[in-house]
Amino acid sequence: MATKTDTRPGRKLYAGIEIGKGPQITRPSREEAERAVRTLIAYAGDDPEREGLRDTPKRVVGAYDEFFAGYKDDPIEVLSRTFDDVGGYDDIVMLRDIELNSHCEHHMVPFIGKAHIAYFPTDRVVGLSKLARVVEVFGRRLQTQETMTAQIAETIDRVLKPKGVAVMIEAVHQCMSMRGVRKPGVATITTQFTGVFKEDPAQQARFMQLAVDRGR
């Protein structure tokens, strides 16, 4: 599939999915961000000058630097170093139970869970830590779980060009636990398949079984 070009700078679309660095925008200064936090504290009904809240804007902005560090990284570059020598290996490579922390773009509250990733290599492989790093890059952005699942699969598919990619994410969304319907512990499961995992039901079933098997 060909890469599609978006007219907005800083965006890379592949099969309609944004997978490059975050959009190039004019970011406010740290001081402006801290003022915005003080405004939200006042909107919530408290005094931003109260002793316990006086340094909260600095801490919140610092936390945002960590929560959303994924906008600074390009997941394509994360996977750029590959190894051609697979030593005759001809089966799937899978990482299971990759811890995932992200924030929903609708309410900016966390969703927490795990990602399971597999790919069927052709003539090259990538370091296992790089797959986990791709999950981290997309997790540290504002988005939906559905979009992130597709982004991870499309990035691996584009860079490694394997026979197929499978991604499964299961996460609990705090926007359902803490507000709205207030149903704690409800897990959302999303999947995305390409190549043999999409075309061959047996390979797809095998991946799903490996994803849920905990040594039983």
Rank of each mutant, 00 (worst) to 15 (best):
E66Q: 10
K4V: 14
A15Y: 11
P201M: 06
A211E: 05
R11C: 05
E51M: 08
V78M: 05
D213T: 11
L142C: 06
S80W: 00
Q24V: 14
S80R: 14
H106N: 08
Q174S: 07
G215N: 08
I169E: 04
A33Q: 14
E136Q: 12
G215C: 03
T82M: 06
Q145Y: 05
T149Y: 05
G87P: 04
G20Y: 14
G62T: 12
G20L: 14
R133A: 01
F67R: 04
I189H: 12
Q203H: 05
E51S: 11
E32I: 10
A36R: 07
A205M: 10
R11N: 06
T147Q: 12
R27A: 12
E105L: 12
A153W: 02
V137Y: 05
P121M: 09
S102E: 07
T144L: 15
L53G: 00
G22W: 04
R141Y: 02
G20T: 13
Y43E: 10
V137E: 00
R35I: 12
D85P: 00
V37Q: 02
I76T: 09
V172I: 15
F193W: 06
D84K: 14
A171N: 09
I98K: 11
T7P: 01
D200Y: 01
V93S: 01
K21H: 08
D55F: 12
V60L: 12
F67G: 01
K163S: 06
M1E: 15
G22H: 02
R8T: 13
D213M: 11
V212F: 09
F67S: 04
I19F: 06
R50W: 08
L210V: 10
F83Y: 05
M208E: 13
Q174V: 00
K114N: 12
P28H: 09
L95D: 01
A36D: 02
A115N: 04
V78K: 07
R11L: 15
R8N: 07
K130T: 01
Y89N: 03
H107Q: 08
D6K: 13
D6I: 15
V212K: 15
T3N: 05
R158I: 06
F83W: 03
Q204H: 07
V125L: 01
T5C: 08
V186N: 11
L79W: 04
A187I: 13
R8P: 00
A211N: 07
P162G: 02
R8I: 15
E49D: 11
M148A: 03
Y64T: 03
